[in-house]
Amino acid sequence: MSLPSHPTIIVVHYKERRSKCTVEPLRHQPGFEFWKFPLKEPQALPNYIRLGIDGPPLSREDRKHGLLVLDATWKLASKMEAEFEDVPIRSLPVCQTAYPRNSKLFEDPSAGLATIEAIYVAYKILGYSLDGLLDEYRWQDEFLRINEDVLNAI
């Protein structure tokens, strides 16, 4: 398995608490760039695709593109999408999150994953190296267990 030819860009909302951020350990891995939202100025991302829920399925053919991932609560992420509406969306197969949720204000999407889970599934589909992605994810074993059939089918 290989690494992406473009860095994976993770845009983190300023209200996202780093202590709860599932992708925080990726800051030290090669191939990842972290941007803070809101951006100081708009960024052109002509050869990128964005992970989302309502797009065509992500496929191996998407390897030619870089991956853009928005990291925030679902409520905040929906507000971030407007800034990246020109970046085509790709969706992931339906998996269950292992990340414990406890929002009392709104309901998370049923197909919603923790950011690290979404990146793991995307990298598996794209044929990229999975080494180290889930090493520091507290719910790694549970995530892999409950999604074993889906992940094995990729």
Rank of each mutant, 00 (worst) to 15 (best):
L76F: 10
Y99H: 10
H13P: 08
R60K: 15
L39I: 14
D135Q: 14
K64Y: 05
E148C: 03
W74F: 11
P56H: 08
S110R: 13
T115Q: 04
L133K: 07
G132K: 07
W139E: 14
Q29G: 05
V121N: 00
R27E: 14
A72K: 07
L113I: 08
D54W: 03
D135T: 10
L68E: 01
A44R: 13
Q29A: 14
A111I: 03
E16D: 01
H28A: 13
F84W: 02
E61S: 15
P4C: 10
L51D: 00
D71Y: 08
T115I: 08
P4Y: 07
F32A: 07
F32H: 12
K36C: 11
D141H: 13
V150P: 04
L113M: 08
L126Y: 05
R90H: 11
R90G: 05
Y99N: 01
R17P: 05
F37D: 11
S19H: 04
A44E: 12
K104E: 09
G132T: 09
T97N: 00
L68A: 01
P93N: 10
H65E: 06
I89F: 04
K79P: 02
Y128A: 03
G132C: 11
D141W: 02
F32D: 03
I116P: 06
Y128W: 11
S5T: 08
P93V: 02
L45F: 11
K75H: 14
V94M: 13
E83W: 05
N152Y: 03
W139R: 07
A98H: 07
K20Q: 09
K79W: 05
R145I: 03
V150D: 04
H65N: 13
E81R: 15
L105G: 06
M1N: 09
A82L: 09
L58T: 02
F143G: 06
C95G: 05
P4W: 07
L134E: 08
W139N: 11
G127Q: 06
Y123P: 01
T73L: 03
Q96K: 15
D141Q: 13
K64F: 09
A118P: 03
Y120C: 05
S19M: 10
Y14M: 12
N102A: 12
R50A: 09
A114S: 15
A82E: 12
R101H: 12
V11Q: 00
A82Q: 10
E136G: 02
